[in-house]
């Protein structure tokens, strides 16, 4: 594959930046010469939206995924994944987690969280590849809390045959980038994700 563009989205604390770093390192391990990432943080720790780009391959120079160009959007939180849908290419994959974090505005004004099944069925008529994974509550020795990023990554590597980075490169990156006492947890979550089947395909 000459170029691949990933967009990861979520809320502060879900590990958006970490998963992006894992992907960046893994892409280089997989042999891609040009790897460029971009992220906007700032108030992530205060529950804000976080989005990050990982782009690699020929002709990649800037840090931002252009409109309609993402090969995959990884939404660690359901609504955050939807937020960037205009960057997804027509045959790109939309991978959403079932994690749902209402915004403060929704809580204060008592607005219901969007019905995921309705949104998904509409999306399926517009995009070829829409997936929902139950990354929260995935059976995992350490519990899945805070490890959804690794679980979803495992699911993607296992499920998408055209994903350009393989299991081994990702595992090696996880080992390189994780604090020692967290390596086992992260790898186990990644493995648990690899066994995950999508709820909706």
């Amino acid at each position: 594959m000459d170029k691949y563009e990933i967009l990861v989205a979520g809320v502060g604390g879900q590990g958006v930046i970490f998963i992006s770093n894992v992907l960046g390192y893994a892409a280089q391990r997989a042999g891609y010469k040009r790897v460029v990432g971009g992220e906007i943080h700032g108030l992530a720790q205060r529950g804000g939206s976080v989005a990050s780009y990982v782009r690699f391959g020929e002709g990649v120079y800037g840090p931002i995924v252009p409109l309609g160009c993402a090969d995959i959007i990884i939404g660690l939180e359901f609504m955050e994944g939807l937020r960037h849908i205009n960057r997804l290419s027509k045959n790109g994959a939309l991978v959403l987690s079932n994690v749902r974090v209402p915004t403060m505005g929704m809580m204060v004004n008592n607005l219901a969280y969007p019905n995921s099944l309705n949104v998904l069925s509409k999306l399926q008529t517009l995009f070829d590849r829409v997936f929902l994974f139950e990354s929260r509550n995935t059976p995992c020795h350490f519990g899945s809390l805070g490890l959804e990023n690794m679980i979803l990554l495992g699911a993607i590597v296992n499920h998408f045959l055209d994903f350009p980075i393989g299991e081994e490169d990702i595992q090696e990156s996880i080992k390189t980038l994780t604090k020692k006492n967290m390596v086992e947890r992260n790898l186990e979550a990644f493995q648990a994700g690899m066994k995950l089947r999508p709820l909706i395909t």
Binding site: V11, Q45, M79, L82
Partner: peptide, 10 residues
Amino acid sequence: FTFPRDPVFC
């Protein structure tokens, strides 16, 4: 279906 997610007090 996407509401703005402003930062909040922790």
